[in-house]
Design a protein around this nucleic acid. Structure first.
Length: 736
DNA sequence: GTAGGGTTAG
């Protein structure tokens, strides 16, 4: 008996086995069966094509499709999704469009799965096209053999013309093109399946009818036609294709909606994407985690582009998350990271708590995402709890987590633990180094920060933009002008990093505070980039310190032009006037601020006692311990004055009597918080206070006295740095 | 047939 006829006897069985292998994703087994079928049925072709696609062997899957067409078989709706996915992955829009034409001719353009795959392709290929990528140079070769003439007969039976049905132009296709070169196909199969094609493909090469042009297999790494496609063109293209498919679908499921939403979001059509989330709700479909992962990135875009003015983008993303029936660890992480990265720290922590309550185990990423929230909110208590969890989960060797812990401890005032964790890291990366350097910078230990920076360079860890922000911040907090210049120049010359606003601001700040006001003015005027209000503001602050009203007015004018909403500068200039006794000018400025609807940010300090945060505003008498706090401050003031403390009323910027000034100073928010800390914690406990503005000169002096009188370390984190008060001295050396 | 998460600055 002939081998081929035996195989034919078993054909139905073989086809079934192949189908099972394919559905189990067993490529090698599927291939072995497929290879001995004398004349594969449409079901067998479907199996092998599907298997190739799901293994990422897109070219192979397309080759099979072409071979199938060449053998005269009609593809059915089971085949197109896999084939279209292969086109998408290979970024071959042209071939995909041809296949779309094929779909229409066969009357399969109402099939749910095929339409979903088509929309996915159109949505993706514009996005990918922007970056440029692999593209077939010879996909016309496919075109030629895609459509045997047989199809023409079927086509004439279709009632309406193809073009009007799809709105997409495609070429008329000729009959098959068959030749005998199969070497590249062999090579592929050898590499991919790991078997010798000369054995496996023997039978097939004998037949000689399923050969394709070798040229098809070559593809080029070229830039796609979509490069430079304007946003409006992209949107038009998207509407043309994806929406046309979508709108014509007789039935849409969750995947259809998710696909079209993802396409809109990925092509920058955020409003449309969010609108469609609402529309799918009207169609009684609930968003799932796929929907969420399309909507979440809109988060960042919205906030970046319009600086929080369009927060409803965030709201919508959060709403989608809340609607999810099943949330896995990744959905939780996404939403937590989304919150934290956009400054919604409390919300991030809340989601984290909910995640734990939902019994979802936090993963590596959860901790590195949530830690910055603790760092920014200075919630050392929460940070320590997370640290404990991290140790128990043996996550400490993860460089992301360790770096975020270093940063958290430094920002929460505990630079010693930050250093301890850093020193234990096996191979700190540039971010870890930057975190510890910035930590020392914030704590005023500039020389340690500088020597760590040099050590990092010696260990061949290349600093980036942020690392230079850190080291220049260290210099600026300690008045190290010469060193700052060296780093600034080295950044440009040795590392080719173009200085940004933060770098310029640090240097300008140094020059200004050293009293080199004119030099600072020149420096800012000659910047390579447009100076923002923030850079000029450093000079305005310096003008206040050095009482140069004339320059202050000149600088303020520039700031008001560049950044009319910059309230800090109005207040700074008003304070400069007040300090010079020019109450009228100060008052005028305040009136003008009021007219613009600006209000001064109220000063606020807070302290964590027994795991609870207590907040104080200036002159605040709402705290339940208010009387005791006031009593303590009174006793302290008497003792301070005996030790030589003299009230410095320079910072009292109201036109009031001396006695009133005395009262105003003593009710500053940081003093209330410190006094509360002293009376509510055991002797010797370090007091850690955070303030939302810069600490004032008088409070700084007072705190030095207080630290000596009560024998406590007092750590005050103001808006730009830490002050460690100990035994009558401050770590900043009175330069801040 | 559709996805997705992380550390340093501001």
């Amino acid at each position: 008996m002939h081998r081929s006829s035996r195989a034919e006897d078993f054909l139905p069985l073989m086809t079934t086995i192949l189908s099972i292998y394919s559905s189990l994703n067993l490529l090698r087994e599927s291939f072995l069966i497929f290879n001995i079928l004398p004349s594969p049925s449409i079901l067998s072709w479907k199996s092998i094509i599907r298997c190739y696609t799901s293994h990422g062997l897109f070219l192979q899957s397309l080759i099979c499709f072409v071979q199938m067409r060449a053998s005269g078989k009609y593809p059915d709706h089971h085949i197109f999704p896999s084939v279209l996915k292969s086109c998408t992955s290979l970024m071959d829009l042209k071939l995909g469009e041809s296949i779309h034409g094929c779909v229409i001719r066969l009357g399969l353009d109402f099939d749910l799965y095929t339409c979903n795959a088509l929309m996915n392709m159109y949505g993706k290929l514009q996005t990918i096209g922007e970056v440029g990528g692999m593209r077939f140079c010879d996909s016309q070769v496919y075109d030629k053999i895609l459509e045997p003439k047989l199809i023409e007969e079927k086509r004439s039976n279709l009632s309406s013309s193809d073009e009007s049905r799809s709105g997409i132009m495609y070429q008329d296709l000729d009959g098959g093109s068959h030749d005998n070169s199969c070497e590249l196909l062999d090579e592929f199969q050898k590499r991919i399946v790991g078997v010798d094609p000369n054995v496996e493909l023997k039978q097939r090469s004998d037949e000689g009818s399923r050969r394709i042009d070798g040229k098809v297999l070559y593809h080029s790494c070229g830039k796609s036609n979509d490069i430079g496609m304007r946003k409006r063109d992209k949107e038009a293209f998207y509407m043309e294709n994806v929406r046309k498919v979508f709108d014509r679908m007789p039935k849409r499921d969750l995947v259809s909606w998710n696909t079209v939403i993802a396409g809109s979001a990925q092509n920058g059509m955020y409003e449309e994407a969010l609108m469609m989330v609402k529309e799918m709700g009207d169609a009684d479909l609930k968003p799932d985690s796929f929907t969420l992962s399309s909507v979440l990135p809109i988060f960042a875009e919205y906030v970046d582009v319009s600086k929080g003015k369009e927060i409803h983008g965030v709201d919508d993303s959060l709403r989608v998350f809340c609607l999810l029936p099943h949330r896995d660890a990744i959905s939780w992480n996404s939403v937590i990271a989304g919150c934290v990265q956009n400054g919604l720290f409390d919300e991030g922590l809340n989601f984290f708590r909910q995640m734990l309550m939902a019994k979802i185990k936090p993963r590596h990423v959860t901790f590195s995402s949530i830690m910055p929230a603790c760092a920014h909110l200075t919630t050392l208590h929460m940070g320590k709890q997370l640290h404990g969890y991290i140790i128990r989960s043996r996550f400490l060797d993860n460089v992301f987590i360790a770096s975020s812990l270093v940063d958290m401890y430094a920002k929460c005032g505990n630079i010693r633990i930050a250093r301890w964790i850093f020193d234990k890291m096996e191979s700190p990366d540039m971010v870890s180094w930057t975190a510890i350097i910035m930590g020392y910078a914030l704590h005023g230990h500039a020389h340690v920060a500088l020597s760590l920076f040099r050590k990092m360079e010696m260990e061949n860890v290349r600093p980036n933009y942020v690392a230079f922000v850190a080291v220049l911040t260290a210099c600026s907090h300690a008045g190290l002008i010469d060193e700052a210049w060296k780093f600034f120049n080295s950044m440009i010359k040795d590392y080719g990093i173009a200085p940004g606003l933060e770098h310029y601001a640090a240097v300008a700040d140094l020059l200004g505070r050293a009293g080199r006001l004119e030099e600072a003015y020149e420096f800012i005027s000659n910047m390579q980039i447009e100076p923002a209000g923030s850079v000029w503001s450093t000079l305005l602050a310096a003008c206040r310190v050095h009482k140069n009203i004339e320059l202050a007015e000149k600088v303020a004018e520039k700031i008001f032009k560049l950044d009319p909403e910059n309230m800090g500068s109005y207040i700074l200039l008003s304070n400069i006037y007040s300090a010079a006794g020019r109450w009228n000018d100060a008052a005028k400025l305040r009136v003008s601020m009021k007219g613009r609807g600006m209000r001064k940010k109220p000063a606020c300090s807070w302290i964590e006692v027994k795991n609870k945060v207590h907040a104080f505003m200036a002159g605040d008498n709402s705290h339940p311990y208010y009387d005791r706090i006031n009593e303590a401050l009174k006793v302290l003031l008497e003792q301070m004055e005996r030790e030589g403390y003299v009230l410095n009323t320079d910072d009292v910027l109201h036109d009031v009597e001396e006695e009133q000034k005395r009262y105003i100073l003593c009710s500053h928010s940081e003093r209330l918080a410190i006094a509360f800390g002293i009376i509510s914690t055991p002797a010797g406990t370090t007091i850690r206070v955070t303030k939302n503005l810069r600490v004032c000169v008088d409070c700084h002096t007072a705190t030095k006295f207080i630290s000596k009188i009560v024998g406590r370390e007092i750590v005050v984190r103001d808006v730009s740095r830490f002050h460690h008060f100990n035994d009558g001295k401050c770590s900043c050396g009175d330069y801040w």
